[in-house]
Design a protein around this nucleic acid. Structure first.
Lengths: 144, 144
DNA sequence: AAAATTTATTATGCGTGCATAATAAATCTT
DNA sequence: AAGATTTATTATGCACGCATAATAAATTTT
């Protein structure tokens, strides 16, 4: 029997809790967590190439496709042809999308602000550094 | 624009990466991440009351229901009536379930062992402590 | 004991990510 | 320019968590 909570499960619970909180906040103005994350990565002035979004979000392009479709249906974004590469597309925010982006930004900023206050910059920096180290170990498959 | 990666997104990416890794490992012997986690919480000798499982896993009982059903279909567990509380049920491992539990245990132990080696106990302990602090802040809704 | 309440479980639907396969459009070869 | 290849996007299905509502069974109240 594994007595104390393992680190992996701790990370799982932590992320699930944050996701739940973010979804609660987002649902107050008709959004979702995933949409909020995407909004934040779109440049409100000039837009962002669709190909750049997935890497920025650390996720697969295929996973993004559905979310972008929903965002288009909700009137948050529109697609503009990139004259330099006809396969890629520029994702741009609508006026409504810009407003929602601000809401998402507030939530994320507020949350991270609270973390800074409550945890303290020093410990939080160690936490972030260790997170990055684990991420590298996992992504480079240095475990199995 | 938020320049550096926010802590929440770091946690998201970290968990997604671990989940992916665990799913890869589990799929090698016909399992899944979620099933692995449940298996670990079931006492191989005397079984575990179904009501105790969700809290141990830090998840909702309703979320567990489907996974338990699949585990039953796969022949990993069976349910035994609890004579002391007819509403609750004792979840027990089959022989096959015990074997799979060992496999899951190996994966989790190995992963956490590597973390200890590579990160170092001291930094890892800070990481875990901060994780718990953030978890409390989020679960107590001390943010919004 | 019958009715009301509590508690455990299941059903259903949604959101979100992954993987694989299929499309579609551009680029490269010849 | 025609065909082959690469690259971006979408389609589909699975896993997994949540929420809400519906069931079912026990416990408590009367």
């Amino acid at each position: 029997m594994i007595k104390e909570k393992t680190t992996d499960q701790l990370i799982k619970e932590l992320w699930m809790a944050i996701a739940k909180l973010y979804n609660e906040e987002a649902s107050k103005y008709g959004g979702t967590m995933a949409i909020g994350y995407v909004l934040l990565k779109i440049d409100p002035q000039v837009g962002t190439p669709s190909t750049a979004l997935a890497p920025m979000l650390g996720m697969e392009a295929t996973s993004l496709s559905r979310t972008l479709k929903k965002m288009e249906e909700k009137g948050l974004i529109f697609r503009e042809k990139n004259p330099y590469d006809g396969r890629s597309v520029l994702i741009k925010l609508t006026e409504y999308g810009c407003q929602m982006r601000e809401k998402s930004k507030e939530v994320v900023l507020k949350f991270n602000e609270v973390l800074n206050e409550r945890i303290g910059e020093e410990k939080l920096e160690i936490f972030r550094s260790v997170s990055n180290d684990i991420l590298k170990i996992v992504n480079n498959r240095e475990v199995f």
